[in-house]
Design a protein around this nucleic acid. Structure first.
Length: 237
DNA sequence: AACCAGGACGTGA
DNA sequence: TCACGTCATGGT
């Protein structure tokens, strides 16, 4: 591994942390902030920031499943849309693997409709629910999760890093876009190559991996959303 | 009014 | 292996 790549990735992390601070991912429903009817909880983060500097989540199996659900729902979809779908599931009281599994497909489709791709994601969610139940609390291997139809590289790593707190670095389109722009990789670099680039540059570190990915998303949303990408980061070059 | 959003899968070459 | 079409809603 090229030492300069390692240095630049490290500089990028600290630059983003300086600019944006800890992100406190993964966003979770805050059921302590429901309305007077006990429904419509807010997300940890909509107003007050996510669970910043608290790296003990998920605290329950339901929160763990909520992360798995969100990881599928957010595929190629804006998170705000996913929030609506998750709220629908929560308010319908079926945001658990057992209830997702037994719910009718039509009911599920209607509830997750705002997240888009609802025909596919309904199937994916039921697959995930079944898989989750068979795990019986155990941490799945990356290989095992990938056998789940609807779970590709990024979703698998998101679930492992944020739901199971395993040190698996996530590569998403933002990450690849930023690395390409910084000339740290070619435009056709594949997922595992980029994942290894990060994991060869940093020791396994859940906090670092979680924050790094969240910070890349924040950076991309601010400066790598609309073409042409002209944003320059002096500290990196 | 196009374009994009925290992708994955099936197909054909 | 790999490029390409498909899936769907909501915000800018």
């Amino acid at each position: 591994m090229n030492q300069s790549i390692k240095n630049r990735l490290n500089n990028l992390y600290h630059w983003m942390m300086d600019q944006y601070g800890p992100q406190g991912w993964w966003p979770l429903l805050d059921i302590n902030k429901c309305d007077q009817h006990g429904t419509n909880p807010t997300f940890t983060g909509v107003l007050t920031g996510y669970h910043i500097k608290n790296y003990t989540y998920p605290k329950t199996e339901n929160q763990r499943f909520e992360i798995c659900t969100g990881a599928i729902l957010t595929q190629n979809t804006a998170w705000t849309n996913v929030e609506h779908a998750l709220l629908n599931l929560y308010n319908a009281d079926i945001l658990s693997p057992e209830k997702i599994l037994t719910a009718s497909e039509n009911k599920l489709k209607k509830l997750i409709q705002p997240a888009g791709y609802f025909n596919r994601k309904t199937i994916y969610l039921k697959n995930m629910a079944h898989f989750f139940i068979t795990l019986n609390g155990k941490t799945p291997s990356r290989e095992d999760i990938l056998t789940c139809k609807g779970v590709g590289n990024e979703t698998a790593d998101s679930i492992l890093l944020y739901a199971y707190r395993e040190p698996e670095f996530i590569i998403d389109t933002y990450t690849k876009r930023i690395l390409t722009h910084l000339k740290l990789c070619s435009a056709n670099a594949d997922y595992l190559t980029l994942k290894e680039m990060f994991q060869n540059s940093f020791k396994p570190d859940i906090v670092l991996y979680q924050e790094y990915h969240a910070l890349l998303v924040e950076l991309a949303k601010r400066h790598f959303s609309k073409k042409p990408y002209t944003f320059k980061i002096d500290a990196i070059n």
